[in-house]
Amino acid sequence: LPFKWTGFSTQWYGVLLENEEVLTGLVNTLIVAFGSTILSVILGTLLAIGVHRHVRNRFLDALSLGPAIAPDIIMAIGLLALYSTIGLTLGLHSVLLSHVVFGTAFVAAVVKARLNHMDPSLEEASEDLGATKVETFFRITIPGLMPGIVAGALLAFTLSLDEFVIAFFTNGPATPTLPIVIYSMVRFGVTPELNALAAILLLITFTVILSAQRLTRLGEDEA
């Protein structure tokens, strides 16, 4: 790939903002990332609570984390086969559903770790004082799990933001996500514009991951 270093410059960040293909890919990526994160947080939290309290089989416990462990290429082929079987057209909606599958597993893993440090007597005391199970869930359980939920959400968002393989297999040609746009650009050479985009994504990824780790540690300290 042709590449020539000419020094530091910020001009390519401005050029990047004028690239309609990149902006379209960014919008598509953010739609998928935010949508899949919201659904992953809801499903992952419920999955973590259900597995933690009602599943005593280690195999089933590990199975709930399967999408987080399975190779991306296996997940991509499996999801593509599923969508073809049920006749689902490919587009942003299929990418979003695919990201929910592995995002849910990652959120569940983080929330389960938080559950292991929660004192169950708090929920018992709440019910003894007259609160219903629903009130206890929203006033005691969810606030207690909040550090893990937020950390899981940040992790799911980051993974969705730069995920390529699954999006490449399950997306349609009219709605490319940002990683797919980057792939199409890099095939013709590494440009300063592409380097600027990579630097921005790297900064966002590190910031979100460090925030998630910080929240997880705070939750453990509070517990």
Rank of each mutant, 00 (worst) to 15 (best):
G172S: 03
V181L: 03
R187Y: 03
V181E: 08
I149K: 09
A199W: 09
I200E: 12
V208C: 15
L201Q: 00
N195P: 06
D162I: 10
I200G: 11
S211A: 15
T177I: 07
E193Q: 15
A212Y: 04
A212K: 01
T158A: 12
F157Q: 11
N195L: 15
Y183F: 14
A151F: 01
I182C: 13
S160V: 04
F206G: 12
I180G: 03
G152R: 00
L178T: 11
E193V: 07
V150R: 02
V150D: 03
E163M: 10
G152L: 07
A212T: 06
A167H: 11
T205I: 07
L201Y: 02
G189K: 00
L202W: 13
A151I: 02
I149G: 09
T191G: 06
G189F: 05
I182T: 08
L155G: 03
D162Q: 10
L159N: 09
L203Y: 08
L154W: 05
L178R: 00
I180R: 07
S160W: 08
L178H: 04
L210P: 09
T158S: 15
A199M: 13
L178M: 01
G172E: 11
L178Q: 04
V150T: 04
I166W: 01
N195W: 02
I204L: 13
P192A: 05
E193R: 14
L161I: 05
L201D: 02
I209Q: 11
